[in-house]
Design a protein around this nucleic acid. Structure first.
Lengths: 208, 208
DNA sequence: CGCGACCAAACGAACGATCGTTCGTTTGTG
DNA sequence: CACAAACGAACGATCGTTCGTTTGGTCGCG
């Protein structure tokens, strides 16, 4: 699964040694649940069955963990853009692929996605700026697809690309808040319902 | 403006005495910016030009400030529901009023709204439960309006009220993240663009 | 096969800093 | 003079982090 699993013994058993990956994953879990400032190194140690001081065998400090977790989240979302912009069909299809990909990332990596979205402001300034730039690029991918779809005549006339990108991402990002793995809805169903809302709105055809 | 302004001297001047309202407002500002756990009582004191310990002349503790700020946010949003559900026109109009009212609250009370949305999880358990219940009721107001609009035939057929309420609130709540008072868009314009998105989606009429 | 050397991982005490909070004192205004 | 507001030192707790020590598994070598 991960590149460092070679070093990992049985994993989970008492006395089992933890890898850096385990530490980062647990950090993502706690940062997502309690927030960065609401999580102490001792909390994190307890989550992993060790002392807080023991974490320093794996990472240099708490900030490094935040950088690492958010960096992973950013990579996941970046991957979606890369995938969606490869094929060259109608721009509307690209937009739909972006939406489905986003839902997939949130469902599969909810802790990293949550930390990415909610805790980025606590990053060291240099890292924060990188993440802000990355988020701008992500939004730009949506704007670009919207503008092209507009030129192709697929969208309602006079639509504002910037604002529309924000609205679509609003629906997508909120998934982080309400999605529960225990829910009965499958990820694909969620993406489908979201796309139906984004594409057609809620009003009946003969009333608008 | 507020009910306790009677006690407030010139306000702002050096040596001016602060009211409890000033303290709660400043707390809202800092909690919204840096998060509850990212704000210390000494930070808050500095924001008001006094020592952290001096705050205890106005409030009992830090938690009380969080409860107070979030309580105010909750009241603002509750007021919107009260207003929107008073008139008895078409359910779609009620829905539109809810949307416009929500935008208005976020624009006018962004710090309280931000704290309400992002920091509620750090409330003392008893208060947290109240806020959760209040949020459920808020969502229920949307669901109810959607269901009635559906019965009135105003919405696309087979729409899921629960999911639709979530989507609409997703667009609305995200305003908290991107709205800047310095932006050129007027609140009414924002609400109008949001409603256009929610009502009609993005696809051109002849492509869906 | 057994055994000692090695080494990463975890421990646990301790550091200075900062946290929320308390309380006796000072200040300034009505 | 009275009283609310702010001060400022101090409290115990907890924070992130350091560091010398202990542990337990792996590997080379006889």
């Amino acid at each position: 699964m991960s590149s460092t699993d070679v070093d990992a013994p049985v994993a989970g058993g008492p006395g089992a040694t933890r890898t850096r990956d385990d530490v980062v994953a647990a950090a993502g879990r706690l940062f997502a649940q309690r927030g960065f400032h609401g999580t102490s190194m001792r909390d994190l140690g307890e989550e992993l069955g060790m002392l807080g001081s023991s974490l320093y065998s794996h990472v240099q400090g708490k900030n490094e963990l935040l950088v690492e977790v958010i960096g992973r989240g950013a990579e996941f979302f970046n991957g979606v853009v890369t995938d969606a912009t490869m094929a060259d069909g109608p721009a509307v299809d690209e937009l739909r692929h972006l939406v489905y990909g986003h839902v997939h990332v949130v469902v599969e990596h909810i802790d990293e996605a949550r930390t990415f979205l909610f805790e980025s402001r606590f990053l060291p300034e240099a890292d924060r700026l990188k993440i802000v730039a990355m988020r701008d690029a992500y939004e730009e991918a949506y704007r670009s697809a919207i503008e092209r779809a507009e030129e192709e005549g697929s969208l309602v006339q006079g639509i504002d690309a910037r604002m529309t990108a924000i609205f679509i991402l609003s629906v997508l990002n909120a998934l982080i808040r309400w999605y529960r793995p225990s829910g009965k809805r499958q990820p694909a169903d969620i993406a489908e319902e979201m796309w139906a809302f984004i594409a057609g709105g809620i009003l009946a055809g003969d009333t608008r």
